[in-house]
């Protein structure tokens, strides 16, 4: 007995395995497959035969992958799959870095508040470290949202990147007030700027986020 949904799921997995990794593209191709099948079935075709013919008409993943891989032109935009992979890399970097910073923040919080003899005002400490932790949570949540393709992910990471730029740019001009080295601050600023450029609005059309 031909199971249409099962067949389409397997077809989708084959396309993914063949290199078409961007979910919106897969959705679009699947939509085409269903319409093509539907028309054939209405014309009297057997469902299994309609599925096979529709799949053949769409073409093999390998062939399509090459076409999706390059936008054309020497400096033309990145191909879909490469853009998707870079997006994932950026999202994972944000999650990883933010998580690392957050755990450091919590350690410092613990040290300064519970261990340090000269405790700063509890309120001030909690406020400052709370702001930092909020930013880092934003980075983690934003990165996860970006990985899952939610639009909020882009906005959250951009907000966090802008918020991070403020103290870091300040630190560049007053290095002595900042515990980190100039190299670290510059790397941080650079990373924030690259993130903002990469996630800028207008790239939305071609950056398939998942």
């Amino acid at each position: 007995m031909f199971d249409r949904e099962q067949a389409i799921t397997e077809w989708r997995q084959r396309m993914r395995a063949g290199g078409i990794i961007t979910p919106p593209t897969l959705d679009e191709l699947e939509s085409h497959l269903r319409e093509s099948m539907g028309e054939k079935v209405r014309a009297g075709w057997d469902e299994a035969a309609a599925f096979k013919a529709a799949g053949d008409e769409l073409g093999k993943a390998g062939l399509l992958k090459r076409e999706f891989a390059w936008a054309g032109g020497l400096w033309g935009g990145l191909g879909e799959n490469l853009a998707t992979r870079l997006n994932r890399l950026l999202a994972l970097t944000w999650v990883g870095l933010s998580f690392w910073l957050l755990s450091n923040t919590l350690l410092i919080c613990h040290e300064r508040f519970f261990q340090d003899a000269t405790k700063p005002t509890a309120g001030l400490l909690i406020l400052v470290l709370g702001i930092i932790a909020f930013q880092e949570l934003g980075g983690i949540i934003g990165g996860i949202l970006l990985l899952r393709g939610a639009a909020g992910g882009r906005y959250l990471i951009c907000t966090v990147a802008v918020l991070a730029l403020i103290p870091d740019t300040f630190a560049l001009f007053h290095p002595h007030n900042h515990p980190a080295t100039i190299g670290y601050i510059l790397a941080h600023v650079f990373f924030d700027l690259v993130t903002l450029w990469w996630l800028r609005p207008g790239r939305h059309a071609r950056v398939a986020v998942n």
């Binding site: 191709l29 085409h32 008409e57 062939l63 399509l64 076409e67 999706f68 071609r206």
Partner: peptide
């Protein structure tokens, strides 16, 4: 046309700002 080959064309046109989706 191989049906699937239309979609890379559409996506390229979208990237170049000639069409919107």
């Amino acid at each position: 046309w191989t049906d699937g080959m239309l979609y890379p064309v559409l996506h390229r046109l979208e990237r170049r700002g000639l069409i919107q989706a």
